[in-house]
Amino acid sequence: MPVKIKMKQDHIDKIKEICKKFNNDGGELINVLHQTQHFIGYLPAEAQELIASELNVSVAHVYGVVSFYSFFTMTPKGEYPISVCMGTACYVRGAERVLDEFKRLLNINVGETTADGKFSLTALRCIGACGLAPVITIGEKVYGRLAPDDVKGIIEEYK
């Protein structure tokens, strides 16, 4: 379920500014969504409604695009977003066990955020660092050649 919030005025202004930058052109929807998500961190329903009216396309169209692409998210990410690469190279080198360990220690599933808002967990499709398999990223930091035993120490770093 998309999170229902009342958008702050500065968010509303910023989204309008982004839409204007792309000439309020419906063909630029994906670029608009990229920049909006970069700014707010996710794409709440209200933001999608606003974008739809600014670009003069239907809300259904915006929602259709948002839900189609895995890069777009309708739930806020944690302060430290953990992404476990599940590309083939990582998979055959044991990424699943690393992911299971994160799930177990954080007590969340893939796609969820911890109750304190600190960590969120996603499984990615290959970040192109197959030489470091299995690999995870937390924010922009990359951890490579991991074993399940390393997971606990990594989480400690952020606590």
Partner: peptide
């Protein structure tokens, strides 16, 4: 920019994605 959809490697899908769909 793509937004994470494998099928967009297919050229007709890629073109639709570039059109904002």
């Amino acid at each position: 920019y793509g937004a994470g959809a494998f099928v967009c490697g297919e050229e007709t899908a890629l073109i639709h994605s570039m059109e904002g769909m």
